[in-house]
């Protein structure tokens, strides 16, 4: 009799302890989760603040750069420049940045290029601006990349950045006939468009049907003009890209903070409920223990 009790007692005690331990552990786990989610929310909130400030600056700067982009585009449109049909060599310039956590801005640029490469990857070469586009494209189309740029996105792009890139493209061995710049055009805080800007070689510009209406041109002037235009177009598209990126990051971080907030609410509720349950169970144990006496 005694022996049976002796045997049973530790089992009961063990059971109770185990249960209690599990209760305590969940409580502790929940509070740990809660803490980490709160920390994450703090981070996303401050990232949102930072990108809001950066966005405001990028938007202001973009407004000053748009006339440059539009002005440069106009000549190509008005002179009706088209690529020479029999030379297929094409260049695609992807404008992204090094930094992530900004929604789908980089992927949408990369996807656009991937679709183009899927059609023809023999005569198309890619220049990746920013680590993100390179990382996405290098796995499948690494052989098509002729140039990659990084250290983009931490600070706003400058004209010198763009001219360095334009210079490198012009001095590279790849002789392209036509090209395009793929970038995100900023529309509003919550939206952007992935667009392309055309880039042409000297040969295709001099062959343009409406170039003859432009007076007194020699090749040297046109060449210098195109060199400068390339730098301006790159500068413009980098600014558009930077602005879209910051606005998109702002929205992404805002959503992340909101989601974290929801999670915190749910976790707090579970935490309180579990705590209540633990207390109740302890009370039951004490009372039943007392009544057993």
């Amino acid at each position: 009799m005694f022996g049976r009790f002796g045997n049973l007692a530790p089992v009961l005690a063990q059971n109770g302890q185990q249960q209690q331990q599990r209760g305590m552990a969940t409580l502790k786990h929940i509070s740990m989760r809660l803490k980490s989610v709160k920390n994450i929310q703090k981070i996303t909130q401050s990232m949102k603040m930072v990108s809001a400030a950066k966005y405001a600056r990028a938007e202001r700067e973009l407004r000053a750069v748009r006339p440059i982009g539009d002005g440069t585009k106009q000549f190509y449109e008005k002179a009706e420049v088209t690529p020479i049909a029999d030379v297929p060599a094409k260049l695609v310039i992807a404008i992204t940045s090094d930094r992530g956590l900004c929604g789908a801005v980089h992927t949408s640029v990369a996807r656009h290029i991937r679709n183009e490469l899927a059609i023809d990857d023999q005569n198309t070469k890619v220049v990746c601006v920013g680590d993100k586009s390179r990382l996405i494209l290098q796995r499948l189309y690494g052989k098509n990349i002729i140039m990659a740029c990084n250290e983009i996105g931490r600070l706003p792009p400058t004209f010198i950045d763009a001219s360095k890139l334009a210079d490198a493209i012009l001095k590279s061995d790849y002789k392209f006939n036509s090209g395009e710049i793929v970038f995100n055009r900023f529309k509003s805080v919550v939206s952007y468009n992935t667009q392309t800007l055309p880039v042409f070689s000297l040969a295709s510009v001099t062959a343009a049907p409406k170039l003859s209406i432009y007076d007194s041109l020699d090749d040297e002037v046109v060449q210098s003009y195109l060199e400068f235009s390339l730098a301006s177009l790159l500068f413009y598209s980098m600014k558009e890209g930077a602005c879209s990126e910051q606005s998109s990051r702002m929205t992404a971080m805002d959503n992340a903070s909101k989601n974290a907030g929801e999670m915190i609410d749910k976790l707090t509720l579970t935490f309180n409920r579990t705590r209540q349950a633990v207390i109740t169970r302890e009370l039951i144990e004490i009372i039943s223990g007392a009544s057993a006496l």
Partner: peptide, 19 residues
């Protein structure tokens, strides 16, 4: 400093300069 001048046939004129 430097840049381009474009005069189009619709009488629009663009001067784009680096600085």
């Amino acid at each position: 400093s430097s840049g381009t001048v474009t005069i189009n046939d619709d009488s629009s004129v663009q001067i784009l300069a680096e600085e």
